[in-house]
Design a protein around this nucleic acid. Structure first.
Lengths: 338, 338
DNA sequence: CTGTTAGCGCATTCAC
DNA sequence: GTGAATGCGCTAACAG
């Protein structure tokens, strides 16, 4: 037995296991002297408490899960950064799971977490998710969940979002101010609350500026990149093609660029694009792209903080609360590179 | 006790706990009939085995750790994607830890993993890492580790890299073929093996093409973005400023763009830039950027596969083996957008 | 084929 | 202050 555990420490010090345990957890009724001895030996032998035994006993894992639709996208990368930073502060571990925008996978992942492997969940919904029984099961099992960005309205808990309606309004107004008359809205899903908000902002901005919302200009893409590519191409091939594009998702802005390049459409002369994108590099590398950028890092941090604070008070269920952070519109003025 | 565990199942079926356990693990010496009954009841009551009890008993956690310098970068995002995909296949969980390029944090994270929380580790080194005792400790504790991209030469294990020397050579040759005479090499660290390889390729390409390597054109930046920005600015302000840039890291390519924009330097007329970058969007959004792209997703997958295969044979230490995948040079020809 | 027993490492209750 | 005993939920060795 070269494994160093409480038993081993106890034996070497001629103490009981329980005494050692209490000494290490700094219990009040252990003499200063024994504490010192125990702690010293523990350090010397590099004692590492077994996390599973501890979790088994205490019914707490010091672990949370992040469940994301995907990760190859700057928004979620930054969010993970924020979450991980806070988790290290609170001394928690972070498990990561990707749903690939697939409802079945999302449900399966969540059901696997009902066994207590994690103390809480941070999550952004998959595009496909409509049925939310798996989320309810989580709550029934008293595992708190916090949503960020892609929230679920019908679950009572903390939700971190940005001012999506306002951003949609601003983005659209920006295109209008640049002279666009026929503005298309590209979206993945009518399902997600954030997209509904953004679209509402888009529509209201049109109306406010005496333009007529035209359903024909609302293009619903999906996770199949090729199909989406084709849809955009079709849109751009039409008689009265749009002169402005509001892409509600980063990937769709990128697809627009691809299509424009293919079709030799000049940006921003022929078509102006504004993208709901967190791609720092997008705004850096191409002056033609105006972006709406979410504070992804801070959203991750806020979500994590809310969760950890809730975990401190295990009995109180999470109150329904919206935390709204602000997105930023970043307009790149032309540089020498245009 | 509304918690459903083996004891509960056993009681309801008038069986012994061990019988239930064996039935659920599909042991051969349990009758078909009891198996059926047990499995049915387990399903009915939605029995979820406690992962901690299992891990405690079996000394295996079905969990691996990914340790990364950072994540706000397309390369690591894609790598995580690959890893997570393979992990789901092998039925493993994935913990994620970020070092922020900080050696102390890296060592601390690894030491926390010595307690058996994970069965194995996938890792890309921090830039700062020179002392590798923490990595050795991991091996001494029989926790296998696989490196990808930023590998550690002096640890015997599986390492996934790309053809960095060749890529450095190609990138530099590409700039030379475009007429560049004074090519600068931007790097973060002389420490990382990948950067040494890339630099060697860069230097050899110069020599091969009868250009004289000039140490003055080798610019060592660091994680402090502002400082690096200044260094690049200084380089670009000089009398004989370079006409070609080879950025060995994505972020440095981006900084070059920023500086060029600031200084009204035209890309690619005044300066050509080739970036070691996985930013798909970089190549999409700006035709001026030629990129060298690593197969990040596949690298993640390969690393994970190697690790999981090793975990299947616990007694055999991992053999020292290099798996080299190929990077791609993506040249964007000018589009209507230039 | 099934039951009994033991123990993984730790925290906690109850003695003294 | 400290020790002995118990059990978290599960698997595995042994017995029959």
């Amino acid at each position: 037995m070269d494994h160093v555990n409480l038993k081993r420490l106890a034996k070497e010090l001629n103490l009981a296991v329980s005494t050692v345990s209490r000494a290490l957890s700094d219990s009040h009724d252990i003499s200063i002297e024994t504490k010192r001895k125990v702690i010293n030996l523990a350090k010397e032998l590099n004692y590492q408490p077994n996390p599973f035994a501890r979790s088994l006993r205490k019914r707490s894992s010091k672990t949370i899960a992040i469940i994301l639709p995907e990760i190859a996208n700057n928004y979620f990368s930054l969010a993970i950064n924020g979450i991980e930073e806070v988790a290290q502060d609170y001394d928690y571990h972070v498990l990561i799971y990707l749903t690939h925008e697939n409802h079945a996978k999302e449900a399966s992942i969540i059901r696997h977490l009902l066994n207590g492997r994690v103390d809480g969940v941070l999550m952004s919904l998959s595009i496909e998710t409509e049925d939310i029984t798996h989320l309810q099961e989580l709550q029934e099992n008293n595992i708190p969940i916090v949503f960020f960005d892609r929230i679920c309205d019908s679950i009572d808990t903390v939700k971190i979002t940005t001012n999506d309606y306002e951003s949609g309004y601003l983005a659209t107004s920006h295109l209008i101010s640049k002279g666009c008359k026929n503005i298309a809205y590209l979206t993945f899903s009518g399902n997600l609350s954030i997209e509904r908000q953004r679209m509402k902002g888009y529509q209201d901005a049109l109306i406010q500026h005496n333009l007529v919302p035209n359903d024909h200009y609302i293009v619903r893409c999906n996770t199949n990149t090729k199909e989406s590519h084709t849809k955009i191409k079709t849109l751009f091939s039409e008689e009265n093609r749009p002169d402005g594009i509001f892409a509600s998702v980063e990937l769709l802005a990128i697809l627009c660029y691809e299509v424009c390049a293919e079709m030799k459409i000049n940006i921003p002369n022929d078509i102006k694009i504004i993208g709901f994108s967190n791609l720092r590099t997008a705004s850096l590398l191409n002056p033609a792209l105006t972006t709406i950028t979410q504070p992804a890092f801070d959203m991750g941090k806020e979500a994590a903080k809310a969760l950890f604070e809730a975990l401190k008070k295990p009995q109180i269920p999470m109150e329904n609360r919206n935390i709204v952070l602000r997105s930023t519109l970043i307009e790149r003025v032309s540089t020498s590179n245009t």
